[in-house]
């Protein structure tokens, strides 16, 4: 027997999809970031933003768009990158346990010499590895574009932003895995994970509107990742601890839950 057979199987069967996601992430970065000199640094753009309702500007996070860090945050980390990686996290997390169980493949896997905990561990690791790959790819591409696009990002802060993006999407994936392990139902896993991601984004957007509602951000994973502007200020250790700590807690939930119940087909 060789090591981590389920992890390798997951990665081997998903490489085509991962290639597609990689292309999507790269396209988003290559489309947005080189435009910074023309948009964020442009005086006309500033005037245009001044004419827009401030609530809208705050909601889409464009209030910081005139700096390189703000522009990268608003376009990629807070929007396209977050969206792409969240969709990937939801679909991979859902497929890892619940999807596999509903299509009957989990039954056959578990009839072999693997434990249920091994299934949860190795498949969670496979999802985490793929998300980490997309984040690493993003980091490298941003680093390459940093100079040419005049973003003026500091490397340490970029790493902090990448860690935050990975944390918030990993949490989403772990919600899908944990709910899948608890219920075995695809729809529940997908709904819960997508719900957490959307709610997190919405709470953050509402919390941005006024100081009175800022407390809403305490309940938003999106805010835990980005409220302290990691691209400007570096790592927000409290936020990162919440994101990764909860992800780890959800992994424990999944490990225990799948071990305790019947596998249905």
């Amino acid at each position: 027997m060789t090591a981590v057979p389920l992890l390798r199987r997951s990665l081997a069967s998903g490489w085509r999809a991962l290639l597609g996601w990689s292309l999507g992430v790269a396209a988003a970065l290559l489309l947005y970031l080189p435009l910074f000199p023309a948009i964020g640094g442009n005086a006309d753009m500033r005037e245009l933003l001044d004419t827009l309702p401030p609530e809208l500007v705050r909601t889409i996070g464009y209030d910081q768009i005139t700096t390189g860090a703000g522009y990268t945050q608003s376009t990629f980390f807070g929007l396209m990158g977050f969206l792409l990686l969240t969709i990937a996290a939801v679909s991979w997390g859902t497929a890892a346990v619940a999807g596999d169980e509903e299509n009957g493949a989990l039954e056959l896997t578990l009839a072999h010499g693997v434990s249920r905990r091994q299934v949860v561990l190795e498949r969670s690791a496979a999802v985490a590895a793929r998300l980490a790959w997309l984040c690493l790819l993003s980091g490298v591409l941003i680093l390459l574009l940093n100079g040419p696009a005049g973003l003026d990002l500091r490397e340490g802060n970029l790493a902090a932003g990448i860690a935050a993006l990975l944390g918030v999407t990993l949490l989403t994936a772990m919600v899908a895995i944990a709910v899948g392990a608890l219920t075995g139902r695809r729809a529940f896993a997908l709904g819960a994970a997508a719900g957490v991601a959307v709610l997190g984004y919405a709470l953050n957007a509402i919390g941005n509107q006024t100081e009175d509602l800022a407390w809403l951000k305490d309940w938003s994973p999106y805010a835990w990742a980005f409220r302290e502007a990691p691209l400007v200020n570096g790592a927000d250790w409290g936020g990162l601890a919440l994101l990764y700590g909860l992800s780890a807690a959800l992994l424990v939930v999944a490990l225990v839950a799948l071990d305790r119940r019947d596998i249905t087909g």
């Binding site: 009957g104 493949a105 056959l108 009839a111």
Partner: peptide, 9 residues
């Protein structure tokens, strides 16, 4: 083990 409903994809 051969499951009754074998769904291989």
């Amino acid at each position: 083990f051969l499951p009754g409903e074998l769904r291989l994809e």
